[in-house]
Design a protein around this nucleic acid. Structure first.
Lengths: 256, 256
DNA sequence: GATCATAGTCGTCTCTCTGACGATAAGCAC
DNA sequence: GTGCTTATCGTCAGAGAGACGACTATGATC
């Protein structure tokens, strides 16, 4: 392909590389964690980075994100705008576009525009390294963000910024949607859902008020009929996500 | 530039064109309006489209959006994440990234990924046609969206979809931020701000409850000291935007 | 089996905020 | 002045949230 740049010729254009990067979040051991892969090649060889890759010439952006997600984790994720064809309570991760990053020097090799996607997934087995990554892990986001970062080595490229944006999106979106259920298994208890909120927001919530709120919000939870004692204590009712897209009034994050 | 495609060679990549498209919204005559330009060249010659253009090789995405905005409207817009350097109440439009659109066939000429930006501006003079556009106008969004579209001709490319996403973003964002003030002049009255909400949401709000809400929310409005009678009736206090980024509790959109 | 620890669930009280609406204030047109 | 407009203040009932007491039903431990 021959490429030329002329101000007024609309058939000419400067070429860009387009990639997708994934902010894959899950809740494990009461902490919000992000999926990282270790880069096996320069630039940033040996650094931890968000999973991602080039968009192919014949695929859409969400399609590329979904493909990369499957390659890295084996997760099947319907894209966000289309409703989950499997209906309420179906397993599988939530995927939505986050933002696009295109600083001219964000990749030293060439001009790269990266479309970031946010994935919210239930707890998964330890990831396998895939493709061009020499390792993969779940990292608590508290160790990756902020000035009190435990791991002194930053992420590759601008992935620290992308991760921060993704975490902020997740934190605000579970306020006014039922998206927190995407962090849970198909069936879950009110207490498990509460622990998701507590992990994502980093707060403690009153179990009684939380129970009243989520069970009193129409469309948020559907009773599945069963009970479980897997958390110990008194048996708890099992629910599936009611699929309500928008909660009104929203869940309130304490002291924000 | 020679381009090749190889699965595992990270220095090779399929080339994309990257553009920015602008959803410029304003409120005029009690209606939410979007800026459209008429395309002077194929494809979609003669169709109305969102303003926009190619990103240059050496500029960032927000920079390109800001440049296109200035070229089309003369507006100077600071990008959203950085706070307005001119301080609270400064004129100038609000600009933020909206979403990125990259369906493989969205442009018949080539593979184009478009990063859409949302601009909220106070009422502006009738726009001039600029660059490759043969005309420009403000169109009420009610005439452009939905099945009851008055103008039977759709917008070029996927710009109808982009516009719908931008309008939805604006409608939801003024709920929990002070962004509605971006539609007003530097100094404005409570009534003028209420008419912004009414136009964007397409509802009527109770003037007394609205007044109590906005004047009672800390950081939303700053009294500027003056008064005006430009809306008729009793003189109204003038305010500037207090710059509060997030309103808690939010403004409530009726019956949503 | 009795006791304890754990987690779930229901209720109550108070306070804040909202929606509905009455009442008053202060300009302009005539 | 009267009438019309818009702005602003007040009042009241109801919904919802935060704080917290009380009770329930399981497994663990003695």
């Amino acid at each position: 392909m021959i490429v030329a740049m002329s101000r007024y010729d609309p058939s000419a254009f400067p070429p860009f590389a387009v990639t997708v990067d994934l902010v894959v979040l899950t809740v494990r051991e009461h902490a919000l964690c992000a999926l990282l892969v270790r880069r096996g090649e320069p630039p940033y060889q040996g650094y931890w980075a968000l999973p991602g890759g080039f968009v192919r010439p014949d695929e859409g952006l969400a399609e590329a994100a979904s493909r990369e997600l499957a390659e890295e984790t084996g997760l099947r994720a319907p894209s966000a705008p289309g409703h989950d064809a499997a209906g309420p309570g179906a397993a599988g991760a939530h995927l939505e576009q986050l933002a696009t990053y295109g600083h001219p020097q964000r990749d030293p090799r060439m001009r790269v525009v990266s479309v970031a996607y946010l994935v919210l997934a239930p707890d998964l087995p330890t990831p396998r390294a895939g493709g061009d990554a020499s390792g993969a892990r779940w990292a608590p986001v508290t160790e990756l963000l902020g000035p009190d970062r435990a791991d002194g080595v930053p992420l590759a490229f601008d992935h620290g910024l992308i991760l921060a944006d993704g975490v902020e999106r997740a934190r605000s979106k579970i306020e006014y949607s039922s998206l927190a259920t995407a962090f849970c298994a198909t069936e879950f208890t009110v207490g498990e859902l509460r622990r998701v909120y507590e992990a994502v927001w980093g707060v403690v919530l009153d179990p009684r008020n939380f129970h009243r709120k989520v069970t009193g919000t129409p469309g948020f939870l559907l009773p599945s009929g069963g009970t479980t004692t897997r958390q110990g204590g008194r048996p708890a009712q099992l629910f599936t996500s009611g699929g309500a897209n928008v909660l009104n009034p929203p869940m309130l994050r304490p002291e924000s």
